[in-house]
């Protein structure tokens, strides 16, 4: 464990907690893409399969349970909670997210490190996570006013994988100089997809104005 990775995990945890608090406090999920939340549940389920097989550390197992639990809880709130589900804007959240799941799965079948069940699903989860934010970004472009909590949520979610990139550089130089293109490139693409959002988010924060993404 290194500072970059811990900072990355804490940023990721904070983003999810922030979203959960926003939904619970305001009893609203306006501006949040259910599609992205569902994609993240698929990412965590396909990545944390080894949760009960391989024990790395208490921290690792605990965080996996927290990520799985909170992401499913968010989807439950948006789909089934009697008040929150009314605030979900179905006809704005239009991204066909299953057009992301299938290609990522096929790509994982073609490009992977070992052809084993766990490895294929782990690789699939990396590919899927790199594009999972797209429905949310598309929804933000349509939103006239993005509330601060939602903007901060997306910012932290984007920042966590950026910190992981530093973590991989650090591990490369301090551990064993092994190249791992699949997680590295997936993480790079994932972070690159946020650059547009990062630019407008930081500019709105500097100019003290409302966050607005160009349509």
């Amino acid at each position: 464990m290194n500072a970059f990775r811990l900072a990355g995990d804490m940023t990721h945890l904070l983003s999810i907690i922030l979203l959960l608090l926003k939904i619970r406090a305001t009893k609203s999920c306006a501006g949040i893409s259910l599609k992205t939340q569902e994609l993240y549940v698929i990412v965590f389920m396909s990545r944390y399969l080894d949760l009960f097989r391989t024990y790395y550390s208490l921290y690792n197992s605990l965080m996996k349970i927290i990520f799985l639990g909170t992401s499913m809880c968010i989807v439950w709130y948006m789909r089934s909670h009697k008040v929150v589900r009314q605030t979900y804007n179905n006809d704005e959240d239009t991204f066909r997210h299953f057009f992301l799941v299938l290609p990522c799965f096929v790509l994982a079948l073609l490009v992977h490190r070992n052809f084993t069940f766990i490895e294929i699903l782990w690789t699939f989860s990396l590919y899927l996570e790199s594009v999972a934010i797209l429905p949310q970004l598309v929804l933000l472009q349509k939103s006239s006013n993005i509330d601060n909590l939602t903007g901060t949520y997306v910012f932290l979610l984007g920042a966590y994988r950026g910190l992981y990139l530093f973590n991989w550089v650090y591990r490369f130089f301090t551990e064993n100089h092994r190249v791992r293109w699949i997680p590295w490139l997936s993480g790079l693409i994932q972070t690159a997809i946020y650059t547009d959002f990062f630019y407008y988010y930081i500019r709105s924060w500097k100019n003290r104005e409302k966050l607005k993404l160009p349509a």
Partner: peptide, 10 residues
Amino acid sequence: AAEFSLKDEL
């Protein structure tokens, strides 16, 4: 030794 992978990460 177990082959190095980044699976010990989240």
